[in-house]
């Protein structure tokens, strides 16, 4: 097996004085999708934010393609090739779609064709303010921002949250297509989507990694899924 793109060892993080990540280990192998699973409040989003330096790391190591990046400022981490698609999209509502995308362009030759191919809808709405888009469209803008640059990895946080079933499929299709060009670390509450996209899973509970392994094996053991996530593998949270 080749070296992982992203390796997180013993990560701990806090918001203010409140510890939110206690001890997380995870690896994202090259050319694959790794899903972080866990119940609400387990520390999934916080793990992602801690990797990015958006919340204060209090311990542990983060390695990107063999280079230690913990301790870097957020913008440096991102410049090293980390694309981020936050929970709740966080598009700039007062900026147009085109401006949202232009702001995200770091590379000399951004992958505008790929974005146009994946999200024709939003390209057609370039001049519209992002705040006036539907939730699904905003999600596309957020994904497009991350896909524009040649990243080493994408961190994608709950991309299907709050979307209608038809849109969930659309977003999942886009993610599958994105996974062909870049490894992804994915937080996903919708187990169907996670099952479809992920090759490996990491389960977090109480801010700690409690399970890590191949996705197929994990989802096959329904009692374990039930025990760790409190849901049936078939249901979506």
């Amino acid at each position: 097996m080749s070296a992982p793109v992203l390796a997180v060892r013993g990560l701990a993080a806090a918001i203010g004085h409140q510890p939110v990540v206690e001890h997380v280990d995870l690896e994202v192998p090259a050319g694959s999708v790794t899903a972080i699973l866990g119940r609400n409040g387990a520390g999934k989003t916080s793990t992602m934010k801690a990797v990015l330096g958006l919340i204060t790391r209090t311990g542990g190591e983060v390695e990107l393609a063999g280079e230690r990046i913990d301790g870097f400022a957020t913008h440096r981490i991102v410049q090293r090739g980390v694309g981020y698609v936050p929970e709740d999209r966080e598009v700039f509502a007062t900026l147009t779609v085109a401006e949202n995308l232009r702001l995200a362009e770091r590379d000399a030759s951004p992958r505008r064709e790929l974005v146009a191919e994946l999200f024709p809808d939003i390209i057609a709405r370039s001049a519209q303010r992002a705040g006036t888009l539907s939730g699904g469209q905003q999600q596309m803008v957020s994904l497009a921002r991350a896909l524009l640059n040649e990243n080493r990895i994408l961190l994608i946080d709950e991309p299907t949250k709050g979307l209608a079933p038809k849109l969930v499929t659309e977003v999942a299709d886009a993610l599958a297509r994105a996974a062909e060009v870049v490894p992804i670390l994915l937080v996903e509450q919708n187990l169907q989507v996670a099952k479809r996209l992920a090759q490996s899973v990491v389960v977090i509970a109480g801010g700690r990694t409690v399970h890590a392994g191949p996705a197929a094996e994990f989802f096959a053991d329904e009692t374990r899924v039930e025990r760790l996530l409190g849901v049936h593998g078939e249901a979506s949270a």
Binding site: L52, H75, V78, P86, E90, F92, T94, L95, E99, L103
Partner: peptide, 21 residues
């Protein structure tokens, strides 16, 4: 100007796009 407008709205997301705000 673009960075400033975006930053007024959501500064941490600007840094998360790799921009030294």
């Amino acid at each position: 100007g673009l960075i400033i407008r975006a930053g007024v709205e959501n500064r941490s997301m600007v840094t998360a796009l790799g921009i030294d705000v």
